[in-house]
Design a protein around this nucleic acid. Sequence first.
DNA 1: ACCCAGTGGGGTAATTTGGGTA
DNA 2: GATGTCCAAATTACCCCACTGG
Lengths: 69, 69
Amino acid sequence: MASRTHDPEPLLTPAEVASMFRVDPKTVTRWAKAGKLSAIRTLGGHRRYRESEVRALLQGQIPTQRQGD
Amino acid sequence: MASRTHDPEPLLTPAEVASMFRVDPKTVTRWAKAGKLSAIRTLGGHRRYRESEVRALLQGQIPTQRQGD
DNA sequence: ACCCAGTGGGGTAATTTGGGTA
DNA sequence: GATGTCCAAATTACCCCACTGG
């Protein structure tokens, strides 16, 4: 088994996610605000995104979960 | 900066594909709906197209799904 | 402490979607 | 059957400036 420390979950910056979807980084921010994409906040308020989730979203395997409706 | 070996697939917007084919963006949308062109969806529902596929289509290297011929 | 590319927040154009129609 | 146009609504892109990340 691995040690008791957490596995280093690969995180992506807004710009990286934006380039993967061919959208503006601001758009990725809107997705996070809308709850379509879970974001991890830095202590300074910047957002980081889980690479695994982003890739799953790109493959369309996640039923585009929306919050407000 | 996140110096991750990141190979984002180049994607094209509907307008870009439309100008490449000299057609209306709406027509490109119809091609995607008809399955003639694979499309990746943004979380907001907009379509993005693979540049490699579009270029191959432009060169006629992909046997378009046509019935008899 | 300085540098500076990237990001957040807000607001406003531009593009895209989807249906119906020519 | 395939493409272009009109319309309303939704989504996205670009503009500002202040702050964060390395």
